[in-house]
Amino acid sequence: MTIGHEAFTFVRELVRAESAIVLEPGKEYLVESRLVPLARQGGHKDVDAFVAELSTRRNPAAMRLVVEALTTNETSWFRDTDPFTALRQTVFPALAKTRSKREIRVWAAACSSGQEPYSILMTAQDTPELSGWKVDMLATDLSLEMLERARKGEYSQLEVNRGLPATTLVRHFERLGLGWRISPALAAQVQFRQLNLMRPFPAMGKFDVIFLRNVLIYFDLATKRDILRRVRQVLAPDGHLFLGAAEMTMGVDDAWERVPAGRSSVYRIREEQRTCVP
């Protein structure tokens, strides 16, 4: 069953107040699926009952959990699989032909607890064309707490079960108490920095690949358009942008074109727009 209108409205207002993220109508399923674990932990019969109690008692700790559940990214390794296959088979080999300095710059723009930037680096190591190359990775997030987690690179048993092939686990992680820690060599390749996508970007040069997945869905149209315009300014003219599977540039910022890459697709700046980029 889906979350009721009243509960959805309460959650939408709460999240908007706390994070400036707008959950448009149609995001009921997202809200429902993210809140089911919280409702269950609290012993409620469903999400509606959980939200009803939240809206009457306004327990601050529970409210914070709700906001976090709806604003943090999912944390699977190689999330959605296809973009990483596209990186290895299409995007990285193409870049390897054109970057004479044998160096690639990648930006993970909403890195959450770090699974995405680390997955990108592991994919680069599995790309024969990039053997011996330097991969310069910038990982940013709005949440300082998430950045701290990502920087530490410590993951629970449950987290390393999510989407991480066993061969990759034993190659890139070591045991740490009950959980696992990313190998220091991999962690050393990532620079973590706090960044609010809604504000002007700091000076950070141009990137060959940008991952901006499942973030735009939370913003209104004007903000989406503004972010995509500014992303164009920090992407190399022949660079590649990855968005979430449910996101697109069409109707938001038409300077982008969608290009198939394996079973996935990437966004590239249209040829005629490349010269116009300041």
Partner: peptide, 17 residues
């Protein structure tokens, strides 16, 4: 290789792999 404890999602993701 799936380590217990696991969630249903984790098993499904392994099947996908």
């Amino acid at each position: 290789y799936l380590i217990k404890p696991f969630t249903g999602d984790a098993l499904v993701e392994k099947l996908d792999l």
